[in-house]
Nucleic acid binder design. Structure first.
Lengths: 352, 352
DNA sequence: ATTAGCACTCGGGACTAATGAGTGCTAAAA
DNA sequence: TTTTAGCACTCATTAGTCCCGAGTGCTAAT
């Protein structure tokens, strides 16, 4: 634990640097930190902080800049989360519009809101619920040998896909299909639908197997698509403006562009004790992010489904202001989604 | 019309500049242009070309660079579209995968292909067909007071939206709904569905009006969504690499980010005599694009539906190579989509 | 009409000098 | 023992200067 005064100085350095982006020197600190000591004393403390690895100087004759460890210490011990102002609250709320009832849209909107609000890039995932089950499957004929299959899950995710069949689609076929679907899929957890399950089912169909097979494979595809939580990134171009990325912003954008690691980004470390996670610089496991920080917050729907939303920006970001904003946004999302979830859960299995 | 030799020189300048990005001088041209004249003669011609506004020099002691007018003249009169090599063909083809039957996906894939192939940004629109009509509308109950409405158009576009109802959804309601839908919407051109039409319909329902209203409004929304051709942009981050955008790439990306003008970009000038359109620098109506060129190609499905696909990049792009590539890609798209269209058109109105 | 020759221009790189913010250290003061 | 004043030192940054060389435009000869 750092001595009181040194903490104060570190906090002042971090906050000042976050605000101005310039290395901060001992003189400047004198007035900012509210300490009644001379700049020389502060310099001594700063030398200590430097030795301990919390701050560093870009070059000999410059002020100090927080290191990653410095940010970490600040975030863990010194930072006082700011109170959200009323107009900020409103701003966050007004960005979210949840009439549509579609979780994917809500998360998208939440991302956009964060982008507007923070001027960073935002990342969000649609809820993934290991206990989600199939609510409904519909087949909509499109042409003699083509149909749309529509899948709806208990979490409100809707997926659809076109499917070409080998044989013409007749009324009989449709009836048979909805029969099979009703018996085998309704209420089935998404995780239970896999290739083996589909093949076993096809095998059991006997004569109908040939005509049904493509349709069932399509169902499998849809379930797959619905299981994977979608990762959404927006506001990347905001990052271009920050001088810390300067010339190699392209690299970062390219990295963010290929979706694969994004899921990893938010899934992150398993310590679910805290609902908000701050990752600074190389704490992100990717070297492309070594100059970036993420603030990731998990939302919950009921007890099972979870997802995450957060931001990506330069390590020099206003943590104390951003954390409460993201927390607030997450709360709203959780509430919205839980409402719908409740509604749906209570609906039972009524059919027409 | 420029004299033969001057044309040759202009072409050489444009091509050389496109290749190297460096201003090209008289000496260099001597060997490139294949002219057996001295550099002094070439200088005289260059002076003429400069006077005519086709080329310019960045500073007094530098070589020449094509002006916008220079590119234009080159593109209109001098450029010989390159033959596509076999492996380039394959590369384009392999990027497109049209098993899914979903036009939106195909266009998306086409965009990605262009991005990979050209290293520029790609833009594409989904087909818009003024004669498109409603093929099917389904209602899928989700919870007591909530349903998914799914719309399918004759062009294969599928849209869905959640809808909250004021009264619980009963089997009766569902039957009534599909009855109304069948009678009033099936086969209706998208353009015929509008607020007035919906209101008239609601008014005619009498007692059922209250329960149906939200559902019908949702249909209206869906039709709206299906009518508007979606604009897709990808590969923006590629543009960061080009030094012509240097420091203000952010501006361009921001511009491309807000979707609104994108539709305008591709809809463009009405001269439909040529299926491929090249817009150089300020020929694009937006000042953010004054250093960019677009190559836009229109695809057709049957006789009605059209859309566009193209690229955006710095004016210094290899027009003679890109034009045939994009043309080829467009041909493939047209073919793919037309195939499905035929299939669907021939399907008639069979119902289950 | 073409060409050789030449003076001229000017961006960019290399080098130098001056500036000044900020430091670390030392020795005196509290 | 802690704090402070003072001072020499470092080094990024900026401005100034010089020089090089690619490329030009012009003129006079072919």
């Amino acid at each position: 634990m750092l001595p009181q005064r040194r903490q104060k100085i570190l906090a002042a350095i971090v906050e000042q640097y976050i605000e101005t982006g310039e290395p901060v020197g001992s003189k400047a600190l004198q007035s900012i930190a509210g300490l009644d000591v001379s700049s020389a004393t502060i310099r001594n403390e700063m030398a200590e902080l430097t030795a301990q690895g919390f701050i560093t100087q870009p070059h000999t004759s410059a002020g100090r800049v927080p290191t990653q460890a410095g940010y970490r210490y600040y975030v863990d011990n010194l930072m006082k989360p700011a109170e959200l102002e009323e107009n900020e609250r409103r701003r966050i709320e007004s960005g979210l519009d949840y009439r549509s009832g579609d979780p994917e849209q809500l998360l998208q909107a939440a991302g956009e809101t964060l982008v507007d609000f923070t001027n960073f890039a935002a990342i969000s995932t649609t809820p993934s619920d290991e206990h989600a089950f199939i609510k409904n499957i519909e087949m909509v004929p499109v042409s003699p040998k083509m149909a749309m299959i529509v899948l709806l899950t208990s979490t409100g995710i809707l997926k659809s896909k076109a499917c070409r069949t080998d044989v013409p689609i007749t009324a009989d076929l449709q009836d048979a299909f909805s029969d099979i679907v009703r018996k085998n899929f309704f209420g089935t957890p998404l995780s239970d639908v896999n290739t083996v399950m589909i093949q076993t089912l096809v095998a059991s169909l006997g004569a109908k197997a040939l005509s049904m097979s493509p349709l069932l494979v399509t169902i499998s595809d849809l379930v797959e698509a619905a299981s994977v939580s979608e990762v959404n990134l927006s506001g990347q171009s905001n990052l271009l403006g920050y001088k810390e990325y300067n010339d190699n912003a392209g690299q970062l954008l390219d990295f963010l562009h290929k979706e694969e690691p994004l899921g990893m980004l938010v899934s992150g470390s398993g310590d679910s004790d805290s609902d908000i996670e701050i990752r600074i610089g190389s704490e992100n496991r990717y070297k492309e992010l070594e100059n970036s920080s993420m603030i990731i917050s998990k939302y919950k729907i009921g007890d099972n489904a979870t997802g995450a939303i957060g931001i990506i920006g330069p390590t020099r970001m206003n943590y104390s202001k951003l954390v409460p904003s993201i927390k607030y946004l997450t709360d709203i999302i959780s509430k919205f989604l839980s409402d719908v979830y409740e509604e749906e859960s209570s609906s039972g299995e009524e059919d027409s």
